[in-house]
């Protein structure tokens, strides 16, 4: 499992596809999941063990789960289950914690939880890379 993080619009998905997915393989795009279909990831990971799965917009998926009314513990366990699966998955997340703490409690929760889950993913990941201007800085 790989973890890629960085600011919005830094070229994280492009980097992941170019570096880890064969360029001539257009079908990889079908294996990119985001906030619209991320709930399928558990099934896909279980069924297609040999395919690289890209989980894009991880932070927006966290936001969606918060909005669905799930508590932090549930979300943590759900993400924890996925990263334990023996599949080839690349998780991509925006860095959203570098700013003024918002007034809205839910926004605070979104930032905190995304950060905490990022720590959990980074711990388990085989590699952690931060993307700045399309350039990767390997930090693990």
């Amino acid at each position: 499992m790989r973890f890629i993080l960085g600011g919005f619009g830094q070229g994280k998905l492009t980097y992941a596809l170019e570096k880890y997915c064969a360029k001539d393989n257009e079908s990889i795009k079908e294996n990119v999941y985001d906030e619209n279909n991320f709930r399928d990831i558990v099934n896909v990971c279980t069924m297609c063990k040999d395919t690289i799965i890209v989980w894009n917009h991880f932070n927006l998926c966290v936001k969606k789960m918060i909005e669905s009314g799930h508590n932090d513990e549930y979300i943590g366990e759900w993400v924890g289950k996925i990263i334990e699966l023996p599949s080839d998955i690349i998780i991509i997340c925006d860095e959203i914690g570098n700013g003024i703490i918002p007034i809205d409690e839910n926004e605070v929760r979104y930032r905190e939880l995304t950060g905490r889950l990022g720590i959990m993913i980074a711990k388990k990941a085989d590699s952690v890379e931060r993307i700045i201007c399309g350039i990767a800085q390997k930090i693990k």
Binding site: E95, G97, R111, L113, T114
Partner: peptide
Amino acid sequence: VGGSGSGK
């Protein structure tokens, strides 16, 4: 130094 929930 670090952001929110970074583990700093």
